[in-house]
């Protein structure tokens, strides 16, 4: 019962607000002093359990985890000391594999054909990595397409023109895709069980808070950038929907 004194001490210092706080605190103090009778254990258990579920378990369980069929190193391929890829700028070097077609559409993840421009002989590896061995053996030898998992695939209702953004809007690949080009290992592909989207659309952060422009790829993010760049007319529905 000693603890009951504390709120009254506080109330002397402050006005009615502190007396209200005091009242609440005194109530909790009473509860704590008499924990089992109050059911706080249950409340706390529920609260902590739910917080655990909501903050830890749910974000973990929401996504499937799939490994790419092959571990591709962007870093090696873009290292000028190792691989000679034509292009003066980063953009041009990206486009060496992730090219625009003549009709202006974007080829996205390259087909095996592009890989085989260099890796043309399944018997002759160009590097020394086991990944390349596997790649030559499983795909090049049979000329089988690699079933890549796409991190940034938008849903079917979305129309996105890469050329409008990259060529006409002069955006870097990095603006939306981040430093993917510098990675040595392909990240685990995480698909949202409910929506079927890749985690990259919503962002790694479960709160959807982004610190970089490439952290999220939701409609609001597109609109935000359009507005920022003074391109409000591109927020019209039919610009990005089909």
């Amino acid at each position: 019962m000693e603890n009951q004194e504390r709120p009254s001490l506080d109330s002397k210092k402050g006005g009615w607000i502190s007396s209200l706080i005091g009242l609440i605190l005194s109530y909790y103090a009473k509860l704590i002093s008499n924990p089992f009778r109050s059911g706080l254990v249950y409340f706390g258990a529920g609260l902590i359990g739910a917080l655990f579920v909501g903050w830890v378990l749910f974000p973990f369980a929401l996504y499937s985890r799939q490994h790419q069929p092959l571990d591709f190193s962007h870093a090696i391929h873009l290292d000028e000391d190792i691989v000679e890829i034509e292009g003066d700028t980063d953009l041009e070097r990206c486009q060496y594999c992730h090219a625009f077609r003549d009709d202006g559409t974007f080829a996205g993840i390259p087909k095996l054909e592009t890989c085989m421009e260099c890796h043309d002989d399944p018997e002759m590896a160009l590097g020394e990595t086991p990944e390349e061995e596997q790649f030559l053996k499983d795909y090049v030898a049979d000329e089988k397409e690699i079933p890549w998992l796409s991190y940034s695939r938008q849903p079917d209702c979305v129309f996105f023109s890469h050329i409008a953004h990259v060529k006409m809007g002069e955006l870097d690949c990095r603006t939306c895709h981040g430093d993917h080009a510098k990675t040595d290992k392909l990240p685990v592909y995480k698909k949202n069980w409910i929506t079927g989207y890749s985690i990259n659309i919503w962002g790694k952060n479960i709160l959807g808070i982004k610190s970089n422009s490439w952290d999220r790829m939701k409609m609001d993010d597109c609109a935000e950038c359009h507005t920022e760049k003074g391109r409000e007319e591109n927020n019209a529905c039919f610009v990005c929907h089909k």
């Binding site: 009709d103 202006g104 023109s161 409008a164 006409m168 089909k242």
Partner: peptide, 20 residues
């Protein structure tokens, strides 16, 4: 939709040919 996707297709082609 007046085949709106064909407008988008035409725009992509125009961009590829350096036209707006």
């Amino acid at each position: 939709t007046f085949c709106h996707h064909r407008l988008m297709r035409a725009k992509n082609q125009a961009y590829a040919d350096d036209r707006r």
